[in-house]
């Protein structure tokens, strides 16, 4: 692991639901400007890591540092203010609201209306497809467009770090490819740091710099994604040999 500029540092994280600990000591480091991919079987606690870091569930032990400050007890609003945004796993656009209103919601914490307008235009520049549909109800768009809107909405507040929970979930292979290209573009051109969970392990590792494998709530492998792709154990367990 290089000692470069660590943006998110999760140390020995314990968290879970009710009496059950799902995470039993997870460690994650995300360096500024990288794409980091977390893979692992179902029930390994991948999504739970996001929920704990983002403040939806309590962190029971361990801590999370973002950009040098302790964010262990932060609630979602605080995370957003600190510069972390999240794209959840399931369709999360507000289906009965227009594309434009959905984007407004991404910058709810900004009270200055002019800023919000300006930012919406910038997002429309990034995703021209959304500009064409700004007055359309979000629920009537295709799955790929909705995912694009989710990403656009998450970018509204100019996050330093974007958490993405399975960006490819429920999308056709071709659309998945497009979304991954979009993520790479955002990373290259805006310098956006991305931490993502991916079920689609091979594709996820191919576009990322670092990879983590979670199993039963613990890290089992970690390292540069290239190495993980070549690692025989990881290959046989998650990449289909």
């Amino acid at each position: 692991m290089n000692n470069g500029n660590i943006l998110l540092d999760v140390q020995d994280l314990y968290a879970g639901y009710q009496k059950l600990d799902i995470l039993k000591g997870v460690n994650l480091q995300v360096n500024t400007g990288e794409i980091v991919c977390v893979i692992g079987p179902n029930g390994a606690g991948k999504s739970t890591v996001f929920k704990a870091v983002y403040g939806f569930i309590d962190i029971r032990k361990g801590r999370a540092l973002f950009d040098g400050s302790d964010v262990t007890d932060y609630r979602p609003q605080d995370m957003l203010r600190a510069g972390v945004s999240i794209v959840p796993q399931l369709r999360s656009v507000f289906p009965q609201m227009t594309v434009e209103e959905n984007l407004e919601m991404g910058m709810y914490l900004e009270k200055e209306n002019k800023q919000v307008r300006k930012r919406i235009d910038e997002i429309f520049d990034l995703f021209p497809r959304l500009a064409e549909r700004k007055k359309q109800k979000a629920g009537t768009m295709s799955g790929g467009e909705q995912r694009m809107l989710e990403i656009g909405r998450a970018l509204m507040y100019r996050p330093k770090l974007l958490l993405m929970d399975e960006p490819s979930a429920g999308l056709a292979p071709l659309i998945t490819k497009m979304i991954f290209e979009q993520i790479e573009n955002l990373n290259r051109e805006l310098g956006l740091t991305v931490l993502m969970i991916e079920q689609n392990a091979r594709q996820g590792l191919e576009i990322s710099d670092q990879g983590y494998v979670l199993q039963l709530g613990k890290n089992s492998f970690m390292g540069p994604s290239k190495d993980l792709l070549d690692n025989p154990e990881v290959r046989s367990a998650f990449l289909g040999g």
Binding site: Y54, F56, P76, Q77, L80, R81, I86, P88, S92, F94, P95, Q96, M97, E101, E104, M105, G106, Y108, L109, N113, V116, R153, Y157
Partner: peptide, 23 residues
């Protein structure tokens, strides 16, 4: 207003609204 949109957002997806920083 944005407050009104936030109400609709709560109706559509309350957890999602919270993720967007809506109290």
């Amino acid at each position: 207003t944005e407050f009104g949109s936030s109400l609709v957002a709560i109706r559509e997806d309350e957890v999602g609204a919270e993720m967007r920083g809506i109290n």
